[in-house]
Amino acid sequence: MNNSTVRALSKVPEVTLIFWVIKIAATTLGETGGDSVTMSMNLGYLVGTAIFAVIFLAAVAAQINAKGFHPLLYWVTIIATTTVGTTLADFADRSLGIGYAGGSSLLFILLIASLFIWHRSLGTVSVDTVSSPKAEMFYWVTVMFSQTLGTALGDWTATTAGLGYGGGAVVFSALLALVAVAYYRTKISRTALFWAAFILTRPLGAVVGDFLDKPLNAGGLALSRYSASAALFAFMLTCILFFKQRAAEKAH
Rank of each mutant, 00 (worst) to 15 (best):
N2W: 04
N2L: 06
N3L: 03
T5M: 13
V6M: 07
A8Y: 00
S10H: 05
E14L: 13
L17T: 09
I18E: 15
I18K: 09
F19K: 15
W20D: 14
V21L: 10
I24S: 07
A25L: 10
T27Y: 01
L29I: 10
G30C: 09
E31N: 11
E31R: 05
T32M: 14
T32C: 14
G33E: 05
G34Q: 01
V37E: 11
V37R: 07
V37D: 11
T38E: 13
N42D: 15
L43N: 09
G48P: 08
G48C: 09
T49A: 15
T49Y: 08
A50C: 05
F52G: 04
F56A: 01
A58Q: 09
A61F: 15
P71F: 04
P71V: 00
Y74F: 12
W75R: 09
I78S: 08
T81F: 03
T81A: 10
T82R: 02
T83D: 13
L88E: 07
D90I: 00
A92W: 08
D93Y: 02
D93M: 06
L96S: 01
G99W: 00
A101Y: 12
S105N: 09
F108S: 13
L111I: 01
I112L: 07
A113Q: 06
I117T: 13
R120C: 05
S121I: 02
V125Q: 03
V125F: 05
S126M: 00
T129C: 12
P133Q: 08
P133E: 05
E136G: 11
M137G: 13
F138K: 01
F138R: 02
F138G: 05
F138P: 08
W140A: 05
V143R: 10
M144C: 14
F145M: 10
S146I: 02
Q147K: 02
L149D: 01
G150Y: 06
T151S: 02
T151K: 01
T157Q: 06
A158L: 02
A161D: 14
G162W: 08
L163K: 07
G164I: 06
G164T: 01
G164M: 09
Y165H: 07
G166D: 03
G166V: 02
G166M: 01
G167W: 00
A169D: 10
A169T: 03
V170L: 10
V170M: 08
F172E: 04
F172W: 09
S173R: 03
S173W: 00
L175H: 11
A180D: 07
R190D: 12
T191H: 10
A192Q: 10
A192H: 05
L193Q: 05
A197H: 11
A197T: 04
L200F: 00
T201W: 04
R202Q: 13
R202I: 06
G205W: 14
V208Q: 11
D210S: 12
D210E: 15
F211V: 04
F211T: 11
K214P: 06
G219W: 12
G219H: 14
G219C: 11
G220F: 10
A222F: 11
L223Y: 07
S224M: 04
Y226E: 15
Y226G: 15
S227R: 15
A228E: 15
S229K: 13
A230N: 12
L237K: 09
T238M: 15
L241N: 08
F243C: 06
R246V: 04
A247I: 02
E249A: 03
